[in-house]
Design a protein around this nucleic acid. Structure first.
Lengths: 114, 114
DNA sequence: TTCACGTGTAAGAAAATTCTTACACGTGAA
DNA sequence: TTCACGTGTAAGAATTTTCTTACACGTGAA
């Protein structure tokens, strides 16, 4: 039972999400346990809006998962935790993934896709 | 005998190099056999200067290796081939790599490093 | 009411990446 | 000499990514 490999496009998105020092640190932090946005921002030493953006990027790539919960004292807390991913990168696996890339003849740009 | 994992910075560079559709396609193409720049550019359908840039990015990350050779008819040919890499990405392996990241208190910027 | 804490998002500056165009150099063959 | 083919690189435009600042809303406690 191995997880089916992501499509080329999905893989690119995942790698792009992980190819940033700050985001890598975020994933590392969450690997140690779930956490909510404001606290995570303080611990890592980043502004909350900035962290918010990076968390979205990671979640869009399917690497982390967020859930809005209500704390006992009624505050809305957004908790994030790492998803259960496992990527194996080799010339061969990359070649396989590249076959499902969609864009040789230019599809819509990232901005248009949004 | 497993290869020692790359440092956090090296890993980020590798992932950044692979997180681009065109570069992923380049690696995929080279996985099928070594090739020289001009021919590779024609096969992939990209301008040679652009390919040149992407090849440099991939080589800097250690994912491909280039060697300048002289063809029988005296032309200088730059051949590239895929390096022998094997990356395993998991929340745990990323957390380990993140520990060797250098930049919490801002080192030199990418431009300054150059 | 006001403060501390949580959430989210929008606007714009700053920086990095991506891509094109144009140039320069060297060889062998026509 | 000129052409076809290989190499490399520089300059600038276009786009994307990264980050800051400022705003808005909701809750419980002082």
């Amino acid at each position: 039972m191995t997880a089916s490999p992501p499509t080329g496009d999905d893989l690119v998105e995942m790698l792009a999400a992980l190819s940033n020092p700050l985001r890598l640190r975020i994933v590392a932090k969450l690997a140690g346990g779930r956490d909510y946005v404001s606290r995570l921002a303080r611990e890592i030493g980043v502004s909350r809006p900035l962290l918010h953006m990076h968390l979205q990027r990671l979640e869009a790539a399917g690497l982390i998962v967020g859930s809005l919960e209500l704390s006992e004292d009624g505050k809305a807390m957004k908790y994030y935790e790492v998803a259960d991913f496992d990527l194996h990168l080799t010339a061969a696996t990359l070649a396989a993934a590249a076959e499902s890339l969609t864009d040789p003849d230019q599809g819509p740009t990232r901005k248009e896709r949004s």
